[in-house]
Design a protein around this nucleic acid. Structure first.
Lengths: 341, 341
DNA sequence: CGATTCGATCGAATCGATTCGAGTACGATA
DNA sequence: TATCGTACTCGAATCGATTCGATCGAATCG
């Protein structure tokens, strides 16, 4: 069923039929009715999106990349929130969301799909490569959760300052011996993070949060997780708490990691916050994970997604939107206290 | 940058350039090199997916619909697992996943996006309407988690039998007074579910699981949740446990709901499983939610997604794949015991 | 040496719409 | 009645590839 067939049946030209359907051009009521009637008779269900997108030069689809597999990415509510924000704004704009991962097997879809724009979230080691591919294809791109690049605006929170604020609270409570659990820092899976290593690192989330931590606790131990999960937080937490120089406070770079640290502490018979203070990052709803109200920094996940989507839409329309830094909000919680005497 | 420009620069015809690029036709090495060199010079990044999809009649995109908003859908790991399975298989096939919701604002994307096929998950009240739209557009569709329709195969587990097995375990332990918490049953948000109401219902997940429950406990009370969340499970759980005819066992239709019921019980000072037995459904990893190992029926979420994706791919290729029913596996857990004397 | 075959290349049709400029007919105005 | 304007309608170009059948040249075979 093509528009041509409908036009023939209705006894009008293809162009008129097109106008009648889209409701754009001046078409008499009689003609429009004829066309719609013919379409109905023939079971024509509207113009073929493929043809339309070729002609119009846009497909009405925006790609959204999340790190790792879908299942790993969406284990963290932060990613879910961001995708939700993106989907909401794009949906309102009549666009669809093509869900992509940086897994190797999804690469072909990434390279071959028709997309008008792209939201690249996370700081995958592949980002540079993917960006280059998108640049060659002239696909307007927005980074979500990493630093802007020339010609590629970014949407993020100020990770450094936010973490600094958290660390400062701990310092003000009297903590001198603090440690941190970072998000994955590099592809190599380094565990013990030294300042030297960080110097070479870029402006990733993990690196910025670590800088914020070190700006308050310059000698604090930093261990990197391999994933942002409760289990991994528990594992690293145990490593930290087993050290001879056991910290009195832990700054975890995500709430999931923080929940793991709390668990590790309780597993070792330490009370939170009396024996150990713990702060997280993200502000996801955690009642379901621990009985504590986690002290953390809430970041606006959905707003990040919405803003990224709006930014990419503006790019698609030819605008030159600027990068956006959104604000975090401190969540007091009940997992910090002065260090034990 | 078009293929035509590349062909001109390389001094060959467009058709030859196309053959050289796709690597399909017989092209001499010399020619191929010339074409690729020209492409490189001009910064041509491969054929335009829009044009290609028009000509080939397929876009390399398969839609996947989840219920509610992204954030609500992905609060339940079951949906995440299914999307992961779908993404995995489609990725391997070189296809992309267009993530759609049944929210009103996403409708335009649903109707206008170029898709070769569609996986409709859940039992949204809109399913009938969406199916009709897809039928008119001749988009091959697979249902995931609801009953097959004429011409539309489905992938699901045997919800009735699986729930029956769970209920039977409870009966065998001596329970006579059991209640159930169902997933949302209808758009109206009915809370107290009567057999009469169920008779009119279709073959939805919630209805089938309820039938399984009633086939063992014909007089058991059934309350419907409005959502599959821990909070909602706790709310309904309290309602059930406040009744004068307090049940000694609760069959929750999802693990999240079950976790909520466990919480409600503990909140009322009841011990699980001594005072109250609770079973769930799904087999998601719940260590993070309760200290109990939930007794439940594990359903293969990712496999459901994978199977649905394979089925839709077969449909796209013109095959006539059959509906598939996957198996569940009983997870003993520690939340059931004989009823208190 | 002529006929046959095969590999490489090309031209042109095609996918299904959108869109622009041109054209037509009708009614209104002077 | 002639002219102008308005409201519709149409034809044709275009988007950027893929693909089929035809052609051409060289190599192989009898």
């Amino acid at each position: 069923m093509t528009l041509a067939a409908v036009a023939r049946t209705a006894g009008v030209s293809v162009s008129t039929a097109s106008l009648a359907f889209s409701g754009l051009g001046p078409v008499s009521d009689a003609t429009r009715d004829k066309v719609l009637a013919a379409a109905d008779t023939l079971g024509y269900s509207g113009p073929d999106p493929r043809a339309r997108s070729l002609r119009q030069g846009r497909s009405g689809v925006v790609g959204m990349l999340v790190e790792n597999s879908v299942i790993r990415a969406f284990r963290d509510p932060v990613n879910v929130g961001m995708v939700d924000g993106v989907a909401e704004v794009l949906g309102d704009a009549g666009a669809g969301v093509l869900l992509l991962t940086d897994a190797p097997h999804a690469r072909s879809a990434f390279d071959n799909a028709a997309m008008d724009g792209m939201v690249l979230s996370g700081c995958s080691p592949l980002v540079a490569e993917l960006l280059e591919s998108l640049r060659r294809r002239h696909i307007p791109t927005v980074l979500l959760g990493s630093r802007a690049r020339p010609g590629v605006p970014a949407v993020d929170v100020d990770n450094l300052t936010a973490t600094e604020q958290l660390a400062r609270r701990l310092a003000e409570l009297g903590h001198r011996q603090a440690a941190t659990v970072t998000l994955p820092l590099d592809a190599a899976g380094t565990q013990f993070v030294s300042p030297a290593l960080l110097a070479g690192a870029g402006g990733d989330t993990a690196a910025d949060r670590l800088r914020g931590f070190w700006s308050v606790f310059p000698t604090g131990v930093a261990l990197a997780a391999t994933d942002s999960t409760v289990e991994e937080g528990e594992r690293i937490g145990r490593l930290l708490l087993d050290r001879v120089d056991r910290p009195t406070a832990v700054v975890a770079q995500s709430d999931l990691l923080a929940a793991g640290v709390v668990r590790a502490a309780e597993g070792l018979g330490l009370a939170v916050p009396t024996d150990l203070s713990v702060v997280g990052f993200d502000g996801i709803e955690l009642q379901t994970f621990t009985s504590h109200a986690l002290t953390t920094m809430r970041q606006p996940m959905q707003d990040k997604g919405r803003t990224a989507a709006r930014t990419v839409l503006r790019l698609i329309e030819g605008g030159r939107p600027r990068s956006v830094t959104l604000d975090c909000e401190f969540v007091p919680g009940t997992t910090i206290a002065p260090p034990p005497p």
